[in-house]
């Protein structure tokens, strides 16, 4: 039954060809007038935001302000939640994510996501990465797959630490290694946008440092959106910053500019530490 499904699949676009289009698409992700509700509870209010390509954009703000909800709108993870409703448009490279012909699975490959808590599958390190690759390219041969696994792990700065234990359980890795494995897994399907939802929230400072260093290198090839509570982290790694409060996006701009001269009092108050 599975094989039938694979045959129907058309060729999948890869990140390699994306560079051709860069010139006419300065924005990786654009949201216009996005409001959303969980049941009757409104979590996003008329959010407009533009995420530039090949940059790191940090979404900051106190908890419960809608940053994570916004991320989950972009790859339509919220579809999985009963009672979720959304208005407005979100487009990725100009393509409406809610369009009638959108294949959500392809959207989620284009827009990869890493979660707050490392969530490796309870299987080997190798299989964690191979799973998604095989899923999208069932006819892949072993050598090619080995190559992708190795490259993804190298891209995630994890290869040297796990190359001797690829067949060991991913659950045996440390928290920081698990999170980098999750990044490697997301990279393996060749996304164009990588979203990270507080990826360092459960990690120690050393593991956090490794991930930040990794993200700075990945920014050359991917558009990165990171939700973070940690202002210092946002300062260290982001090019662009957007401040969320109570479901509204109040201010967006280059990081240095927002930090040095916030336009809104709420932003200034947040940067001073007046909100949690």
């Amino acid at each position: 039954m599975n094989d039938v499904a694979e045959v129907v699949l058309p060729a999948v676009p890869t990140a390699g060809t994306a560079s051709v289009d860069v010139a006419c698409e300065p924005w990786a992700v654009q949201a216009a007038g996005v409001s959303s509700w969980y049941g009757s509870n409104q979590v996003l209010k008329d959010v407009d935001i533009c995420i530039p390509q090949r940059r790191i954009t940090a979404l900051i703000g106190p908890s419960g302000c809608g940053k994570s909800t916004f991320l989950r709108c972009v790859n339509r993870m919220n579809d999985l939640i009963r009672g979720f409703r959304m208005q407005g448009t979100v487009s990725v490279h100009g393509e409406d994510i809610n369009g009638p012909q959108v294949d959500v699975t392809l959207l989620r490959r284009t827009v990869g996501m890493v979660f707050q808590h490392p969530n490796p599958f309870p299987m080997s390190v190798y299989d964690n990465i191979a799973l998604a690759v095989r899923e999208h390219k069932p006819s892949i041969n072993r050598d090619e797959l080995d190559g992708i696994v190795e490259q993804s792990l190298k891209d995630a700065h994890l290869w040297d630490e796990v190359k001797d234990r690829l067949s060991g359980s991913a659950l045996g890795l440390s928290g920081g290694q698990q999170q980098r494995l999750c990044i490697a897994r997301a990279l393996a399907v060749k996304p164009e946008v990588l979203m990270l939802d507080e990826p360092c929230a459960s990690l120690d400072p050393i593991a956090t440092g490794k991930i930040e260093e990794l993200l700075l290198q990945l920014r050359e090839r991917y558009t990165i959106i990171i939700v973070t509570h940690n202002l210092a982290q946002a300062r260290r790694i982001s090019d662009e910053m957007a401040f969320f409060l109570m479901g509204e996006m109040l201010e967006q701009g280059p990081t240095q500019q927002v930090l040095a001269a916030p336009q809104r009092e709420e932003t200034a108050a947040y940067l001073d530490g007046s909100y949690g």
Partner: peptide, 30 residues
Amino acid sequence: MEGTDMSSSQEAAIRLRFSRADGSLGRLGT
């Protein structure tokens, strides 16, 4: 705000990444 109102020519130039222009169901049939 440049990107928000795209001219129709730009729209036509978009390379589809995750929509299925042929209207096929892909895996949804399975």
